[in-house]
């Protein structure tokens, strides 16, 4: 089997597994919607207030929702031993985990991105800001999945790893939040958002090139 065929097999397996547990798949999305609902109810649902807090709140909600989904990235595979098979396979482990993280993002990150303009409407964000939210989430959630993948790989062997995930991921995810929310705010004020978008793109490029190796090394340690 060539490397591309192996990658295809990993992707197909992830999608097949997800297809058998459709209920689990929607959980991060529902969590995102719930957190987004809590803020207007906890504060006052006034238009100006919601426009002001919208970009930040939606970004934090997306961050927490993807954090919630992260533990599932390697947990089931560690428990049933299939991750060890991946580690022992003759194919480059960084590429295999990159495929796994990619599938994970398509299944948990992409739905958040798609639904975000709708939620932005509920916060009365102008159309420009809704698109900016979509664009920043589209660029930044893969980075988040990859960074979180390193932390998930480090804690994969731990029984209570999920509790540690937040402490490990959130500090590293801060720049994403800062630039993502700032770009959305800029768009709401009618300013150009190219700068923060480029920075988020640069972070994605760095994450795609560097984190697969860190994830692979972390998995080798966890399964050792």
């Amino acid at each position: 089997m060539s490397v591309t065929a192996a990658l295809g097999a990993v992707l197909r397996r992830e999608f097949a597994l997800a297809g058998r547990r459709v209920g689990e798949l929607g959980l991060p999305l529902v969590f995102f919607l719930l957190v987004a609902t809590l803020f207007p109810l906890g504060l006052m649902p006034e238009r100006e207030l919601l426009v002001a807090i919208g970009p930040g709140v939606l970004w934090v909600a997306a961050l927490l929702a993807s954090l919630l989904a992260l533990d599932a990235l390697f947990r089931a595979d560690v428990d049933d031993g299939s991750l060890e098979q991946l580690v022992m396979s003759p194919y480059p482990l960084p590429l295999l985990v990159l495929a796994k993280a990619g599938a994970h993002w398509m299944l948990t990150g992409l739905p958040l991105v798609v639904i975000s303009p709708l939620v932005a409407q509920a916060y009365y964000l102008p159309a420009d800001a809704a698109w900016a939210l979509l664009a920043t989430l589209l660029i930044a959630t893969p980075t988040l999945t990859l960074l979180g993948g390193v932390a998930a790989a480090l804690t994969a062997g731990l029984r209570r790893g999920a509790a540690l995930l937040g402490l490990l991921v959130l500090p590293l995810a801060l720049p994403l939040l800062v630039f993502g929310a700032r770009a959305t705010e800029l768009a709401a004020a009618g300013e150009p958002i190219a700068g923060p978008l480029y920075l988020l793109g640069a972070m994605l490029a760095l994450a795609v090139t560097l984190t697969p190796w860190a994830m692979a090394a972390a998995l080798r340690i966890s399964l050792d």
């Binding site: 860190a214 972390a218 966890s222």
Partner: peptide, 13 residues
Amino acid sequence: KGDRAAALLAIVG
């Protein structure tokens, strides 16, 4: 294991 996992985290940080 803890040493090696934490070491990797330190390098990423």
